[in-house]
Amino acid sequence: MMEVSTLTTVAFWAASAVAIGFALVVVTQRDVFRAAIALAGSFLSVGILYFILSADFVGVVQILVYVGAISVLMAFAVMFIQDVAGGSRPVQGRAVGAAVAVLILAALVFTAFNTNWSTMDEITDPFAVAALTESYVETGSGDYIEVLTQAHFVEPPIVRNQGVFVDSTSAIGVLLVREYMLAFEIIGLLLVAALIGGLLLMRNPESATGFEEGDASV
């Protein structure tokens, strides 16, 4: 099941190569602004990787959050801080850093290729296969929908849904507000805390209002 076409494989390796190339530019480029642009390119390539891996909603989130927001934040930071002229110099003893990075890579690759990962072929239930690829059939309605497991067991109303990996957005929405409700709420709290913390850190302690005099943004 879930055969991967040659075109998909070529697209996967192309997007991976572009992402890794841009990432190498980020960590080797002295000009911080060029590093920020390369980082945006790397984020975009990784977003394309998510689309290739059938994760359409994660791909959209990647492009909205990373390419749209974080890259712009990085570019603003680079432009605000006038220290860019000196460039991003490497620290002393970066050979040690390179050695540690190669060790991490070796450990991860060894684990990835020497572990017997379970595969999708182990799924034998034909309805599970249908749910992951093309379509599945639901009967009934309400909070708990029992999926048909036997073809002859047909009760109206029957809803024919697209497979999970074909249209993941609605299934992710249900997951977020049911199984992962608490984590979802905590993420909201965390983002508010990050917002308030950012504002506090940006305060100017000498000013009465906490911000620069005549600052139009206050």
Partner: peptide, 28 residues
């Protein structure tokens, strides 16, 4: 691919002096 990107990011964190590039590597 994931391991290569992670190792590149780790190298950036260890080897760059500018705090901005360190944060970029963390995002990688």
């Amino acid at each position: 691919v994931s391991a290569i990107l992670f190792a590149i990011g780790a190298y950036g964190v260890f080897s760059r002096r500018s705090l901005i590039v360190v944060i970029m590597s963390l995002e990688l």
